[in-house]
Design a protein around this nucleic acid. Structure first.
Lengths: 219, 219
DNA sequence: TTGTATTCAGACCAACTGGTCTGTACTCTG
DNA sequence: CAGAGTACAGACCAGTTGGTCTGAATACAA
């Protein structure tokens, strides 16, 4: 949804704006974020800003779009796996690639989930975000649905629920494991990835814990 | 941290204020919440408000405190379990009781976690919240540490991390499973509780998935 | 009855909000 | 060299923010 003008503006300016906006949104959420603060820290004037963007939501959506695009590069051009074993090795490979992008831009993940959540709570904004979020969501959930078909992933719960839970786990881990101020070291990131992997396996495992599967109201 | 005056004010007034504030904070987060809107929807004047509260943070902390107190009633006066089996049955019993309070005040959990998170991100507020949050946190983490001692819970990760992850799972499930507008039915709540239970077991299981335990950087 | 707290109502405040608008320097085209 | 379009700078706007202050109605004590 961003103005085409912005896309062909000076890369340094674009990065300054998107960076400042990302930091502001990450720190204060959507409503709490102040355009004026963003302008100040990006060294941009009001006039310039409204020349490039329609409104606050437009900026937020642009930030979200760029952030997701960066993170989603890892998911491009991957054939659906053909058996259960290759499903998990595919996922592992994807995680490795995601980790690489994460290392290059550490706070991105957190921002995407936080901002994404905030935007999707507001119906008008969700509508504006839907176009460019749709195929990302579909690509991911398609992969996991294939996992279910192959018996590599539990089928007693819908993938959407599984994905939400994994998202929740990711956020929790990022909150606890990633340092607040300085950017995380490679070791910290890899430890987080390892733990995340462990949790994802546990959560998605088709055999589950030592208890009967969920049917809808166990006592 | 709330003024003593507020504690001995009319219960109907207290409920009106806390209710309105809870809704506002839940809907807009800490920064996005507007005192003026709260006043309007609670039918309170500015003068009255600042007679009862020091500032916005004071109100938020009061809301948080009351909400947690209500949720934490379920955790009072419970002896630490003596063996692995009784640990999990204790947890199950606690979950049942938590579900009961949740049924009485459905949005509370979500609010507590959301608001709590927001407040703990701001150092000054975290300091003000610490006093009345400390023993709650300790009671819960003490229980899980006992679970670790008894071999009922995995010990390769610190309880604080486990608790964060479980919190994340809870929030994710609430977002997906609880209806947005009307209050959830008993069936919906019980289904959510069952799923939550399943995930908690999976996440905390000491044996884990079909993979080696985490040590700090597995390839 | 008088004096003193208590309990508000709401006018008022500076600061800031997202957003508009005018002006202008610059570049490109004819 | 005129004129149109681009790329801003920043004054300005109405509305809202969290918070203060005055004043008055009421309650209670002496």
């Amino acid at each position: 949804m961003p103005r085409p003008r912005f896309e062909k503006a000076e890369p340094t300016l674009r990065e300054a704006v998107l960076g400042a906006a990302a930091r502001e949104f990450a720190a204060h959420g959507y409503e709490g974020a102040s355009i004026n603060r963003i302008l100040e820290s990006a060294g941009l004037s009001k006039g310039a800003f409204y020349y490039y963007f329609d409104d606050k939501a437009d900026l937020a959506l642009t930030v979200l779009q760029h952030a997701t695009e960066e993170l989603m590069e890892a998911f491009t051009a991957d054939a659906l796996p053909e058996d259960a074993a290759s499903f998990w090795s595919t996922m592992k490979a994807l995680q490795r690639r995601a980790l690489d992008t994460l290392r290059r831009s550490p706070r991105q993940t957190e921002l995407v989930s936080k901002l994404g959540q905030a935007l999707f709570l507001r119906p008008e904004l969700a509508a504006r975000a839907a176009p460019f979020m749709a195929d990302t969501r579909q690509r991911i959930s398609g992969l996991w649905k294939r996992g279910q078909e192959l018996g590599a992933v539990r089928s007693d719960l819908p993938v959407e629920l599984l994905l939400s839970v994994m998202q929740g786990i990711k956020e929790a881990l990022a909150r606890v494991l990633l340092p607040r101020e300085h950017s995380p070291s490679l070791e910290e990131l890899e430890r987080m990835a390892a733990i995340q992997w462990d949790f994802f396996r546990r959560v998605a495992d088709p055999t589950g814990p030592r208890e009967p599967p969920i049917t809808g109201g166990e006592e």
